[in-house]
Deep mutational scan, measured.
Amino acid sequence: MQNSHSGVNQLGGVFVNGRPLPDSTRQKIVELAHSGARPCDISRILQVSNGCVSKILGRYYETGSIRPRAIGGSKPRVATPEVVSKIAQYKRECPSIFAWEIRDRLLSEGVCTNDNIPSVSSINRVLRNLASEKQQMGADGMYDKLRMLNGQTGSWGTRPGWYPGTSVPGQPTQDGCQQQEGGGENTNSISSNGEDSDEAQMRLQLKRKLQRNRTSFTQEQIEALEKEFERTHYPDVFARERLAAKIDLPEARIQVWFSNRRAKWRREEKLRNQRRQASNTPSHIPISSSFSTSVYQPIPQPTTPVSSFTSGSMLGRTDTALTNTYSALPPMPSFTMANNLPMQPPVPSQTSSYSCMLPTSPSVNGRSYDTYTPPHMQTHMNSQPMGTSGTTSTGLISPGVSVPVQVPGSEPDMSQYWPRLQ
């Protein structure tokens, strides 16, 4: 039975679970980093996980050691009161100082060594604690504590007292930064006198190289990059290397530039699409467009005044059976039934097929058609009795279509119309 579990990581490298990497692998990681390889490249070359490479390099940059820390136990506290007071002093002298600059000053002034120097995250935590204590304490208590930490007896009751030896409130920041720059020169002199001055200088240079600022491109470089971006948004590694040799930039910087440029292009394309949609959409909808001609068919113009009344309900007709019959029939052209047409008796099958359309009241044959006459024609229609054979009435077949029909004066039988409509 094995005491430890061995495995293979996602890159194909072998590791022992819970145990640190061998010293030979750690040394190779540092050597590759000094030669300029990126952590992701080191991870692929040595088949070590990216997190492990970053952790080893980060500890090497901070402490200069590649040895693993002790497994188990607690780390001794490195942010001692003396170190905290120095950090507060540096922050007062130059409020814009960075944590890694404070760390360098602690090393250069001999406050800490490589073994007990606090990390950048520890210094940031100390600065946050100082800021929170400043908010919790009152103004007087804060000034007393700062005077105690600074070891001075001057008056701290006013704002300019934060910067000793100065009279203009805006000047101390520059003086403090100048003092810090002077301390940086002392850093070089002190570290050069040490035993491991060369190694420390190499480590600091490598650290500065990794902690780079934003790349500033010249106009020629920007023009070359934009020209390549117009050709393709995704250049391959050969195109990037050719462009890197042409404009004297690292291939990694060119790759990052193209990634950022593609993101910018997507944002601009989104804005262009929004403007295009806004320009195509009308600002207001016309009133006429809300009524579609496919839904509402136009009603033909009436030929006679009587045809303006298109349904039985508008003429005072309360018989719903006839109203439904007229509205359900398709529109037909106007025609006239003459008196000489043969009077065919209704076929029983045809009569039964339209039995649902006729009223059940037996008085329908005896009703006159003056009910369908509009009010303004009552006088004219009353002067001509319906009993004469020459009287013409208008029957409504569908809305908007008038059918003048000659009705025999002897017997106005409704059943004569249905064979004609089939």
Results as ranks from 00 to 15, higher is better:
residue 2 Q to T: 09
residue 3 N to E: 10
residue 6 S to C: 08
residue 6 S to F: 04
residue 6 S to W: 04
residue 8 V to A: 03
residue 9 N to C: 00
residue 10 Q to D: 04
residue 11 L to F: 12
residue 12 G to F: 02
residue 13 G to I: 01
residue 17 N to W: 00
residue 19 R to H: 05
residue 19 R to A: 05
residue 22 P to Q: 15
residue 23 D to W: 11
residue 25 T to P: 04
residue 25 T to F: 05
residue 27 Q to W: 10
residue 27 Q to R: 08
residue 27 Q to I: 09
residue 29 I to L: 06
residue 29 I to H: 02
residue 30 V to Q: 07
residue 31 E to Y: 15
residue 31 E to C: 07
residue 33 A to W: 09
residue 37 A to F: 05
residue 38 R to D: 01
residue 41 D to I: 14
residue 41 D to M: 09
residue 42 I to P: 00
residue 44 R to P: 03
residue 46 L to S: 04
residue 47 Q to T: 05
residue 48 V to E: 00
residue 51 G to I: 02
residue 51 G to D: 02
residue 53 V to A: 02
residue 54 S to G: 15
residue 57 L to F: 00
residue 59 R to F: 04
residue 61 Y to S: 15
residue 63 T to C: 10
residue 64 G to F: 02
residue 65 S to G: 05
residue 65 S to K: 06
residue 67 R to L: 11
residue 68 P to W: 03
residue 69 R to C: 08
residue 69 R to A: 10
residue 70 A to F: 13
residue 70 A to E: 07
residue 71 I to S: 05
residue 72 G to H: 00
residue 73 G to D: 01
residue 74 S to K: 02
residue 75 K to H: 07
residue 83 V to L: 04
residue 83 V to R: 08
residue 86 K to H: 08
residue 91 K to F: 02
residue 93 E to M: 12
residue 93 E to L: 13
residue 94 C to W: 13
residue 95 P to I: 12
residue 99 A to S: 06
residue 99 A to C: 06
residue 100 W to I: 06
residue 100 W to E: 02
residue 102 I to V: 02
residue 103 R to V: 11
residue 104 D to H: 13
residue 104 D to Y: 09
residue 107 L to R: 07
residue 107 L to Q: 06
residue 109 E to P: 07
residue 110 G to E: 11
residue 110 G to R: 13
residue 112 C to S: 15
residue 113 T to H: 08
residue 113 T to V: 10
residue 114 N to Y: 13
residue 114 N to A: 11
residue 116 N to W: 11
residue 117 I to K: 08
residue 117 I to N: 07
residue 117 I to H: 14
residue 119 S to K: 02
residue 120 V to P: 07
residue 121 S to K: 00
residue 124 N to P: 03
residue 125 R to P: 00
residue 127 L to R: 06
residue 129 N to T: 11
residue 131 A to L: 11
residue 131 A to R: 05
residue 132 S to M: 14
residue 133 E to L: 11
residue 134 K to D: 10
residue 136 Q to K: 08
residue 137 M to I: 11
residue 137 M to E: 15
residue 138 G to F: 12
residue 141 G to N: 10
residue 141 G to E: 13
residue 142 M to A: 10
residue 144 D to P: 09
residue 144 D to K: 08
residue 146 L to V: 12
residue 148 M to V: 09
residue 148 M to S: 10
